[in-house]
């Protein structure tokens, strides 16, 4: 042990002296690793010569134009929005009910409800995706629009609940008492006191649910019927069979949607809330 300590001592001194410099190197390196690929995507979406012309000699908006006049891509976006908005609405309603039930009530099966609302995050997507296909096949629901919506709801409930539940748990119930003492009835108290306080959390949960649903691939890929290509499925087909520079453009669109959604969600709650998972 002492020999080991002796051997460590110079190293200890080195770390002691250069700790903060080392930390800065780590941060710069990892953030470069996380963000350079995204920068490359954005840059190459403007590259005249397509994805294999790095560094691009000329920048152009040509691929953006091609994307905007691409009917298949436009249909894919429309379908994605049609699925995501409906799934998000359902998920927000259900997650709010879960949060309310877990926060306010004691009932048998409460632990199981929390477990069921968390497991879809934990189980590998391919497993749940396959399970849903088999289930829909068994009950003859087939693979249409609603199957995909249901799959998206299952996928997004855990994330929305993870954000909405803490806003209920941290809400100061004494405000409700005060409201009732001042003569408001239960409904007024809920609409005028409880709802405004938990609303930012619900909205944040909804934005994240929408972001996930908008990006959802695995469940959709397994559950969808033929001709039901959401944008991520469309990109998958493009990548696997014929890459065009348009894929970079679509990627940039995705990035913008996700980044703006998450930034709004974060401004509504705390960034640490998203870190609790």
């Amino acid at each position: 042990m002492n020999a080991l300590d002796g051997a460590l001592r110079p190293l200890e001194r080195l770390v002691q002296r250069h700790g903060s410099r080392l930390a800065r190197v780590v941060m710069v390196a990892v953030f470069a690793f996380l963000w350079l690929p995204i920068g490359v995507l954005v840059l190459m979406s403007f590259a005249e010569g397509g994805v294999l012309s790095f560094p691009p000699e000329e920048l152009t908006l040509r691929w953006y134009g091609a994307f905007l006049s691409n009917d298949t891509a436009r249909r894919a976006i429309a379908l994605t929005l049609k699925i995501s908005t409906v799934a998000t609405a359902v998920t927000v309603a259900l997650s709010t009910l879960i949060a309310y039930a877990v926060d306010r009530f004691e009932f048998p099966g409460k632990g199981l409800l929390q477990l069921l609302a968390t497991l879809p995050i934990v189980v590998p997507l391919v497993v749940t995706g396959v399970a849903l296909v088999l289930f829909f096949g068994t009950i003859n629901l087939g693979s249409g629009y609603w199957s995909v919506v249901v799959a998206h709801v299952v996928r997004t409930i855990p994330f929305a609940t993870l954000v909405i539940l803490p806003t209920f748990l941290t809400f100061d119930r004494r405000l409700e008492e005060a409201s009732k003492d001042l003569g408001a009835d239960e409904l007024e108290t809920f609409v005028q006191v409880t709802l405004p306080n938990v609303f930012p959390g619900i909205l944040a949960g909804g934005l994240l649910a929408f972001t996930i649903s908008f990006n959802e691939f695995v469940f959709t890929y397994f559950v969808k019927g033929s001709g039901q290509s959401t944008l991520p499925v469309y990109i998958w087909d493009q990548i696997r069979y014929n890459v065009t520079p348009e894929v970079n453009v679509i990627s940039v669109v995705f990035l913008l949607v996700a980044v703006s959604m998450v930034l709004v969600a974060v401004s509504l709650t705390r960034v640490e809330l998203l870190a609790r998972r």
């Binding site: 995204i38 995507l41 994805v51 990109i235 960034v271």
Partner: peptide
Amino acid sequence: LLLLLVILPFWTSYIIRMYAWINILQSGGV
């Protein structure tokens, strides 16, 4: 800010993050 910089890439599409690496790693790529 740093935490935001960590989580933002996570909220973008999985497929697109893979595609970014195809851009970088492919033969003749970035």
